[in-house]
Design a binder for these strands. Sequence first.
DNA 1: TTGAAAGCGATACCAA
DNA 2: TTGGTATCGCTTTCAA
Lengths: 350, 350
Amino acid sequence: MAHTERGKRQPTPDAKTARRGGDSVTLEDVARLAGVSTITVSRALNYPDKVASKTLEKVNRAISQTGYVPNLLAGGLASRRTRLITAIVPSLANMVYAETIQYFSKPLRDAGYQVLLGESGYPEASEQTLVSAILSRRPDGILLTGVNHSADCRRLLLAARIPLVETWDLTPTPLDVVVGFSHERLGAAVADFAVRKGYRQVATLSASDRRAKFREAALLGRLAELGIQEISCAEVPVPTDLRRGRSGLARLLDQGFTGGLVCCSSDTLAQGALIEARARGLHVPQELAIIGFGDQSFAADLYPALSTVRIDRPRMGELAANALIARIDGRPLDSPVIDVGFTIIERETT
Amino acid sequence: MAHTERGKRQPTPDAKTARRGGDSVTLEDVARLAGVSTITVSRALNYPDKVASKTLEKVNRAISQTGYVPNLLAGGLASRRTRLITAIVPSLANMVYAETIQYFSKPLRDAGYQVLLGESGYPEASEQTLVSAILSRRPDGILLTGVNHSADCRRLLLAARIPLVETWDLTPTPLDVVVGFSHERLGAAVADFAVRKGYRQVATLSASDRRAKFREAALLGRLAELGIQEISCAEVPVPTDLRRGRSGLARLLDQGFTGGLVCCSSDTLAQGALIEARARGLHVPQELAIIGFGDQSFAADLYPALSTVRIDRPRMGELAANALIARIDGRPLDSPVIDVGFTIIERETT
DNA sequence: TTGAAAGCGATACCAA
DNA sequence: TTGGTATCGCTTTCAA
C-alpha cells in the first residue's frame, strides 16, 4: 500500500486488489484469506515445520479454497533456485537416449526437480543457440551428452556457474563432472575380443556419429597393432535403424567381406545386420558373428545370436543424477570423473 | 537510484552496482555499457526494428562484450509470457510418443517456444501433482495425451486459462482443442476389415492401456454385430515389446486360436507376434494374418507381411502444434475438434 | 513463530 | 525513437 502514486498498471482504480490479467491467485490472496502475511504462506509451503501447526492448517485451508498454484517464475527469480534441470540429448528418437533420460530423471524427480529436455540433434539450430536458450531459464543444473562442445559453448556454460554433468563419454578435464565410459578403451576391447576369439576377418559397421567413429578408430588402431589385416568398413547415416543395418552388412559382403566378426556401432545396426545375414542364409554366429553396442534390453532374448557391449545405463543415469544433486547441494564428490565401464556380453547360442 | 533507504539486501555498501550472487550479467549492466536505458536494451532484443539501427548496434556490442544471457524468469514474470509449452506424454520409453513429441516440437521451436516434457506414466505421482508442477512454471500452452483426465485435473487445467490441446484421441467436448482420431471408429474399421477379408477367426492382442482397450472393445462390439463368433483375446502389460508380442500370440494359439486375423494394439506387438508365428512355422499372412497399429516406419519394409492401421503422426503433431499456437496468438480455429483419421494399410506380400 | 520492506530482472504503460 | 517508473509474485534479510 506504500506508494501507489499513480498506479499506472492497474486497469481498475482499486490498486493492489485488482488483478491485472484478472486471473491467477497469488500468495497475497491466500495470505489475506488465511489472515496471515505472505511470507508466512510462503514458509508454510516451503518449510512447513517452521510454522505453527494451527497457522499451517489455516494456510492449507486457504490454499485449497482458492486453488492456489505457486508461481515458480517469481519464486525462482527471488530465490535463484528454479528446481529445474536441463538435459541435453542428441535426439529422443534414439531409444538409447530416451531411456537414459528416464534413468536420469527418476532420482531428480524424487529430489523435487523437473527435467527440461533439449535436443541438440537439430542442424538448423547451433548447440550454442540451444545452450543459450536453456541458460535463459536459469536451470539449477545441466546434463550434457558427450564431452565435445564448441569453445563458445564451454564459455557460456562455465560463465553460468551452474553444476554441470557430462555423460556418455569420459575426459580427464570435464567442465565440471563427467560420468561415462571410455570409447577408446571400448574400441580396443572389442578388437582384443575379436583376436581372442580367433576371427581373421573383421568388419566395422558404424553410424556417422562422433562417438561411434571414435570407437571405430580405436578398434581399428588396436587391430593394426595386433596385426589383423583383413578389415572392411562401412558407414551409415544416423539415425540408425534396422534397414541401415541390413544395407550396411550387404555392402560389406558385396565389398568382399566373407565372414568373421562384424562390429556394429549400435544394437539396432547389429539387429539389422543379423536380419540381412539370415536372409542370405549365413549362419550366425558360426559363419559370421555380430557384436553390437548398447545392450538394448528388448533385443536380448529375441536375438540370442548377437553379442553386444553392454553399458549399464540405469547406473550411469543414476550416478549422473546423484552427482548433479550433490553439486547443487554443494556436497563434495569423491572424484569429478566417474567411469561406469562396459561389459562385453558374448552370446554363442543360435 | 530512487529510494535505497536501507539497502537491506546488498552485501556490499555500493548498492545497485554490486551483484548479490556476484554472477549473472543483467539488462542493466548491458544498458549501462551501451549508454542507454534498460528498456531500450529490452526492445533491442525483442523488437529490433523498434530501435534505431545505431542504437541496436551499440546494444549488440554491449551484449556480446558482457556475455549477457536474458533471464526468462524475470521476463516471463513481467510479461506473463514464458515461451514455454509443456507436453504431457505417458512415457518417453514408448517410441510412438517420443516420435510424436518430435513432430509436435518442430513447429513450436520454429515459433520460438521451448518444449518441457512431463511424463504421466509414473504411478508414484498422480497426474494431479504433475499438472500442478507444470502449471507452476506458467507455460503458454499445454499438450495433453488423451482425453480422459480426472475431475481435479480438468478443474486445475481450466482454471489456469491456458491454451490446451488434447491429442491421440477425440471427444466432442474437449477442454479446449482436440486433435486426434476416433479409437471407436478405428476398432470398428478393423472389424469390418476382418469380415471383408473373410477371416472366420479373429483374435485380439492388446496392451493394458486405456486407449488400446477401448479400440479392442469397439472391435469386439462390431464383430458381434457382424456375427463373428470365433474370437480369442489376450492382454499384455505395458510397455509393449517384441517379447510380449511373442508370448501373447503363443497364448492365443495355445488357447485354441488356429489361424485367421490377429489384431494387435501396437506395431511392436504385431512384430513380436510375427516372430512367434514364424518360429512356429506358420505362414504369414496366408495361414495367420496380423494387423498392428501405429505404423512404426522402421517396420515397413522389414516386416512386409504385417498390415497396420496407420496414424499420420507427423501430421497429427503438426496440427496440434499449430492449433496451440493459434490459440496462444488468439487466432480463431475452424473447429475445436480436429480429426486426423487413420488408414488401414494392408500388406499381402510375404 | 511471525512480519515489514527490499529486492530478484525483466516488461508495460505513459510521457517526452 | 527513447526513457522513467511501477509492477509481475515471490523470497530474503532483519527485526520483533
